[in-house]
Amino acid sequence: MSEPTTSRTVTVTINGTMVEREVATSKLLVHFLRDDLDLTGTHIGCDTGNCGACTVQVGGEAVKSCMMLAVQADGLDVTTVEGLAGDSGVLTPLQRSFGEHHALQCGYCTPGMLMSATALLEHTPHPTEDEVKVALQGNICRCTGYWNIVEAVVAAGKSGSA
């Protein structure tokens, strides 16, 4: 029987590494990633679920980590922007495409953009411009005007794998 508690041990596979931690049940996933695991690539933008800067993949799907409790990720795979290049430090084609297409200015939204676009490319390897726009609808950028971001994702799709 499961009785209510205010703290709980969670086991989460983060960027391929299994992590077991005791967390407060009121802690948001984004705070768990940033404060407990020092994975500060995941950003907090609006903290109201609108901007998408906190997007990570949970169970292979893009989700907003400010609208999820850390305990809700128990038993699941989580990928953050730190997990894209991996330990080798070699950027993914999508990350290189962001650089080549000048798809970032201040960079604050970039981790979220990369995580949404990576999830898209995993499901739809060669997306059209419209498919990219739908996939990135939940990610707000206040610098670029979006064109270069959309071009970068479409180009990454044309060039092959994500």
Binding site: M1, S2, E3, P4, T5, T6, R8, A24, T25, S26, K27, L28, H31, D47, C66, L69, V71, D74
Partner: peptide, 20 residues
């Protein structure tokens, strides 16, 4: 934003969820 402290349970069945 930090949430107010909240208790949390994760039932394994509908009956258990309803009991909670």
């Amino acid at each position: 934003m930090l949430l107010r402290e909240v208790e949390y349970a994760r039932p394994a069945s509908i009956d258990e969820a309803i009991r909670l």
